[in-house]
C-alpha cells in the first residue's frame, strides 16, 4: 500500500503567533515552528496502517526551507521518504494554489492508494485542502475521521460531528482527513532520529512540478487578509454570591447559556 501523508509546519501553539506587518501573512520567524499536531496524528495513522499490513509512507510538505525540520520529525516517527516543495514564489499562496501544488507533487511519485491529511491546520485553519485535493485528483474523500480502517480495497472511516457519528466508506484510492480524536501519535525514538538522516527527501520547485508560477503566491491568491487584530482580552466573569443557593444560581446561569 502506497500511503501519502500531507504534513505542514506551523508555529508552535505554545509560542506567541502573529501575522507579519508587511503583508498580513504568517510571521514564521516570530515563533518556534513545529510539525502540526494533527499531521502527527495523520502520520501515526499511516504508520499504523503500514504496520498492520505492508506499504510505504511518503510525506508531502509544501513550505519554506526550515519546513525540513517538520519533515524530519515525520521521518523520525517512521515515515519512509519525503517530498518537499520549496519555492519562494509560494509565499502567501491560498488554499487553491496550495492544493494544486500538492496534487502536482503527489503526481511526481507512484500513484497513491491512500492520501492522509489532517482536517485543518492550527495556523491558517482553512480546512479546505483535503476537499480541493479530492477534486483535483478525482479521488473520493472521507473527511474528519476519528477512526480509519482498511479492508481489502475499501477504506472505512468514522466521522464525528456535533450531531453524531457517520460511518463512511470508499474504494481505494481515496483521501482521508483525520480529526483530533483519531489517535495519540508516537514520539520518535533516538534510533528513529538517526534513521531519518538517511531517508530520501526529494525537493521540488514550482517549475519542477510543471505548475505555472502565475497561479501561486500572494499576488495570485483569490482572497487576501486585509487586516488582523488580536482577540480582545477576556471580560471579567459573572459573580454570584452563594447564600445557600449557589448550586441553583449556577444551574440558572447554565440554562440561560443553553448549556443544560
Amino acid at each position: 500500500m502506497n500511503i501519502v501523508v500531507l504534513v505542514k509546519q506551523v508555529p508552535d501553539t505554545y509560542s506567541e503567533r502573529k501575522l507579519s506587518d508587511a503583508d498580513s501573512t504568517l510571521d514564521r520567524d516570530s515563533a518556534d515552528a513545529v510539525l502540526d499536531e494533527i499531521n502527527e496524528k495523520a502520520v501515526e495513522q499511516a504508520l499504523q496502517i503500514k504496520e498492520a499490513g505492508e506499504g510505504e509512507v511518503t510525506v508531502v510538505c509544501v513550505g519554506p526551507d526550515r519546513a525540513t525540520d517538520a519533515i524530519r520529525k515525520a521521518l523520525s516517527m517512521g515515515a519512509d521518504k519525503a517530498v518537499h516543495v520549496c519555492d519562494d514564489a509560494l509565499h502567501g499562496s491560498d488554499v487553491l494554489a496550495t492544493a494544486k501544488v500538492i496534487a502536482a507533487a503527489i503526481g511526481k511519485g507512484d500513484a497513491p492508494d491512500l492520501v492522509l491529511a489532517g482536517n485543518e491546520a492550527t495556523d491558517g485553519g482553512g480546512g479546505a485542502i483535503p476537499a480541493i485535493l479530492s477534486e483535483l485528483l478525482g479521488l473520493p474523500q472521507l473527511t474528519h475521521a476519528r477512526e480509519v480502517s482498511i479492508e481489502g480495497q475499501t477504506v472505512k472511516a468514522t466521522r464525528e460531528t456535533d450531531e453524531g457519528l457517520t460511518y463512511l466508506e470508499a474504494n481505494l484510492p481515496a483521501i482521508v482527513s483525520v480529526a483530533e480524536k483519531i489517535n495519540e501519535p508516537r514520539y520518535p525514538s533516538f534510533k528513529g532520529i538517526m534513521a531519518a538522516k538517511k531517508k530520501p527527501v526529494d525537493t521540488f520547485t514550482v517549475a519542477d512540478l510543471g505548475v505555472d508560477a502565475g497561479e501561486v503566491g500572494l499576488g495570485n491568491a483569490w482572497s487576501a487578509v486585509t487586516e488582523a487584530a488580536p482577540k480582545p482580552p477576556r471580560a471579567a466573569g459573572q459573580k454570584a454570591e452563594d447564600e445557600g443557593d449557589g448550586g441553583t444560581k449556577i444551574a440558572e446561569y447554565l440554562v440561560t447559556q443553553k448549556l443544560i
Partner: peptide
C-alpha cells in the same frame, strides 16, 4: 524558557527537541 545550546550536530539538536517535548507534554 528554552536554552540555546551549542550542540555538535543536527541529530543532537533533534534529540534535544524530542527530550524537551517529552518533558513538556
Amino acid at each position: 524558557v528554552p536554552v540555546e545550546r551549542l550542540l555538535p550536530n543536527r541529530e543532537a539538536a533533534d534529540l534535544l527537541k524530542l527530550v524537551t517535548e517529552i518533558a513538556r507534554e
